[in-house]
């Protein structure tokens, strides 16, 4: 059987540390994930700031190196790839970042974005061919090439710039796109149009996405499955329908309960005023990470680390309540 396209095995990342210093608590701990070769999917990694979601993105893109664990691309550990293999990996795993303003060099026309990747990855030498593939990529993301090419970044809106970034990634015919908060700086009314493009790329071109976000509403719209991270550990994993509509882990329940619905008849439920101390409650490093904030915390949660307990065939929660 062919190895999975991307497999992450027990990945742990600690920043800092050194000979004389205590290693810092893990930014990401024992994280595993798998993208199949033949079936594209959109996987969401959701969590608050400090949950380790951007660390995961950087690891998956090989921008930083794991403390322990492995990332296998087509069965090959990316830490041990040859130049040639790495070149393929770099082409087939693409990134889209949060800030559609910061990713451009303001002195260059947006064409430079495309020309650079075409040169770097030696897609073509011919000018007419270069133009053709650029235009094709732009049309896939719903941009009109003649309105965009030849412009400087400041002449374009945030939504257009972010779509150009998607087009740039598409140009390389990637298998996986790692998108780190790709729509959080974009107007609410435009977010769904960008995410719709993701869904199209998945369905039409078989491109998988690692969609990293704090926004469960957009995740719900496009994802197939979702990991909920807290303090670097997975609290709950499952198909998107199950996790959002029937969250089991107390942390997921808190997150889902905090989503604002654009519906005035649904008021926020739960506590009327929370103590601010709760927001900053330290992550418990010895047992369940969520212990200090959990309304169901038990004695054993302080020191015992819960396993991923199966709730339904497609959903697991890391909480002793479901042992």
């Amino acid at each position: 059987m062919a190895p999975p396209l991307l497999e992450i095995r027990d990945l742990t990342k600690r920043y800092g540390g050194g000979l004389f210093r205590q290693p810092s608590p893990p930014a990401l701990e024992d994280f595993s994930l798998r993208f199949a070769e033949d079936e594209a999917k959109i996987t969401t990694i959701a969590g608050e700031s400090g949950s380790g979601k951007t660390t995961l993105a950087n690891l998956a893109l090989d921008f930083i190196h794991p403390t322990s664990g492995q990332i296998l691309y087509r069965g090959q550990d990316i830490a041990e790839m040859s130049r040639r293999e790495r070149f393929v990996f770099r082409r087939e795993v693409q990134a889209i970042f949060q800030d559609p303003f910061g990713t451009y060099n303001p002195f260059y026309k947006v064409d430079a974005v495309f020309n650079t990747v075409i040169q770097k990855f030696k897609l073509t030498n011919e000018r007419s061919e270069r133009r053709r593939i650029t235009e094709e990529a732009m049309e896939v993301v719903g941009l009109r090439p003649n309105e965009i090419l030849g412009k400087y970044p400041h002449e374009l809106s945030g939504g257009q710039r972010q779509r150009i970034m998607v087009a740039r990634a598409f140009l390389l015919k990637p298998r996986i796109i790692v998108a780190d908060e790709p729509v959080s700086m974009i107007d609410a009314s435009l977010q769904m149009r960008i995410l719709e493009i993701f869904r199209n790329l998945k369905e039409e071109y078989g491109i998988s996405f690692l969609y990293i976000t704090h926004d469960l509403s957009t995740a719900y719209q496009i994802s197939d499955d979702i990991y909920i991270l807290y303090g670097g550990s997975v609290m709950e994993y499952g198909d998107i329908e199950g996790v959002i509509q029937d969250p089991h882990h107390p942390y997921t329940q808190l997150l889902v309960g905090s989503i604002t619905l654009p519906d005035p008849d649904v008021r926020w439920e739960g506590r009327s005023a929370s103590a601010s101390s709760e927001e900053t409650a330290a992550i418990n490093l010895n047992g369940c990470k969520f212990y200090h904030r959990c309304p169901h915390a038990m004695e054993r949660c302080a020191s015992g680390t819960p396993q991923n307990y199966r709730i339904t065939p497609k959903q697991t929660a890391s909480c002793f309540l479901f042992e």
């Binding site: 609410a188 009314s189 435009l190 769904m192 149009r193 719900y220 719209q221 619905l261 654009p262």
Partner: peptide
């Protein structure tokens, strides 16, 4: 258009946006 373009966890929408 603005209100219907909002992502929600109530329903899945296709072809959102203005």
């Amino acid at each position: 258009a603005l209100i219907s373009s909002l992502p929600s966890i109530r329903e899945k929408k296709r072809g959102g946006g203005i």
